[in-house]
């Protein structure tokens, strides 16, 4: 990660986490669909980000979000899990011919099919971990699964909309 790239990612971090804190935090549909659009920061880090760095960044993002939701550790745990699974998912859905060098992850660069499956898989894992940890009781698991389903779709749609609006190649 060179200097320019680092600067760019720092700006993304501020934008996504700030967006989550100020606006999206209050966005809840029917008490079951939440929007955790801040995960986009972890999803959109450069393709070749080292796993160790990825894990640490995930932890920091999670802890910061936790401090606003008063859920110390829950978002952090889910983010670290997502950060750990990211390289695996990238490897599993490698397109034919492999990846190009220094590729940036976005809808435009990676193609619709790749980006849709990549983001949806990781968002589902993140939300599943998040809501199951939050439930922490067998009687609340069905509700947690419902929340996972609705919130994953919500977050995912939000992520795709942001991709179409702001990440278009000119």
């Amino acid at each position: 990660m060179n200097g320019r790239e680092f600067f760019l990612q720092a700006i993304y971090f501020v934008i996504y986490v700030g967006l989550q804190m100020v606006f999206v935090r209050n966005l809840v549909v029917f008490d079951v669909a939440f929007c955790f659009v801040y995960v986009a920061f972890i999803l959109l880090l450069p393709l070749e980000t080292d796993t160790v760095l990825l894990l640490l960044l995930s932890l920091i993002t999670g802890l910061l979000v936790d401090s606003f939701y008063d859920t110390a550790g829950i978002h952090a745990a889910a983010c670290v899990l997502m950060g750990y699974l990211r390289p695996w998912v990238i490897r599993i859905i490698t397109p034919r011919g492999g990846y190009d060098q220094n590729l940036r992850i976005s809808l435009d660069y990676m193609g619709t099919e790749w980006f849709f499956s990549y983001s949806l898989i990781l968002i589902v894992f993140h939300h599943l971990a998040l809501f199951l940890i939050e439930a922490s009781q067998w009687s609340l698991v069905p509700l947690a699964l419902l929340k996972t389903l609705c919130s994953s779709v919500f977050t995912w749609i939000m992520l795709i909309i942001i991709q179409y609006l702001f990440y278009r190649r000119r």
Partner: peptide, 22 residues
């Protein structure tokens, strides 16, 4: 296995935070 070890350590740290604060 540095990634896996770090992953486990961080998850333990998060677990400790959760238990401590909830």
């Amino acid at each position: 296995y540095r990634a896996f070890i770090l992953f486990v350590l961080l998850e333990i740290f998060c677990g400790w935070l959760i238990v401590k604060n909830n």
